[in-house]
Amino acid sequence: MARINNQIRRLRFDHGEMTQEELAHRAGCTRQTIIALEQGKYLPSIELAFKIARAFGVALEEVFQYEA
C-alpha cells in the first residue's frame, strides 16, 4: 500500500522548537490538523502541503515523502 510520510515533527524542532500552534497559524490550518498530520492520521491537500513546506522554508519533498 502506498504511504506518505512526513517530517513535520522533526522540522518543527529544527526550527527553534516551533509549536504546533505557530505552525498551524503559519500554514493557515488548525492545531488539530497539525496533530493529525504528525500522527499520520490525515493526508493533507496539495495546497496545505505546500503551505507547510513554505512555513518551514523548505521544498515539499523535504516535508513529505511518498513510499510506494
Binding site: A24, G28, C29, T30, T33, Y42
Partner: peptide, 11 residues
C-alpha cells in the same frame, strides 16, 4: 482571528 475550520474539518 484563529482558523475555525480547515480542510480536515470539511473532509
Amino acid at each position: 482571528k484563529e482558523v475555525v475550520a480547515d480542510e480536515r474539518v470539511y473532509s
